[in-house]
């Protein structure tokens, strides 16, 4: 069944990121699995989102997870006392939505990088490694890591300036 192939493909490519993200947000492995399952079902019901060729599939999936987590946390908090939504909570949600939009845009820019460029930013920024450590992990000279970080950041800057809306206008 083609639908199953699509879900298989999504799980194979993005499953680890989805589950790790949901687990960190919820702090609960079983709840995280439920959320990932629900996100996969949404992907199955809306294959056009996965296949329209625009934007980041992973960004969409992680945004769905984040929204599902928010719904759960809110439902959990509301259950005991039926709290009416206050202006305070909606402000928090708006900040949250802005943050999701930003992270999806930045993730798209990251995905648009070459593997080499994304690799050095992953090592240095996300894994917190030094130039020397990154060089030995990637099996390339430290000088190459250094120059790639520069070109990777420049490529990110160009990409984010082109998309606009993230305070990067006019910097390219």
């Amino acid at each position: 069944m083609p639908d199953e192939a699509l879900v298989h493909a999504v799980y194979r490519e993005h499953g680890r990121a989805m589950l790790a993200y949901a687990t960190r947000l919820l702090g609960d492995g079983a709840a995280a699995e439920d959320v990932v399952q629900e996100a996969l079902i949404r992907a199955w019901r809306h294959p056009e989102v996965l296949t329209n060729g625009k934007g980041s599939i992973r960004g969409w999936l992680l945004t769905v997870i984040r929204n599902l987590v928010t719904d759960r946390v809110r439902a959990r908090a509301a259950r005991p006392t039926e709290v009416v939504e206050t202006p305070g909570t909606s402000a928090v949600e708006r900040d949250h939505a802005d943050q999701v939009v930003t992270s999806v845009t930045v993730l798209e820019a990251l995905e648009g990088l070459s593997d080499d460029h994304r690799g050095v930013l992953d090592q240095i920024y996300f894994q917190g490694r030094s130039l020397g450590e990154a060089a030995s992990v990637l099996g390339i000279p430290a000088g190459t890591v250094k120059s790639r970080t520069y070109y990777a950041l420049q490529a990110m800057r160009r990409s984010l300036s082109r998309d606009g809306g993230l305070g990067m206008e006019g910097t390219a």
Partner: peptide, 17 residues
């Protein structure tokens, strides 16, 4: 680099669980 902080670190994990 400030904007990179918006991306959850899990977003760079590849492959299945």
């Amino acid at each position: 680099t400030d904007l990179l902080g918006e991306v959850p670190p899990e977003a760079l994990l590849d492959g299945p669980p």
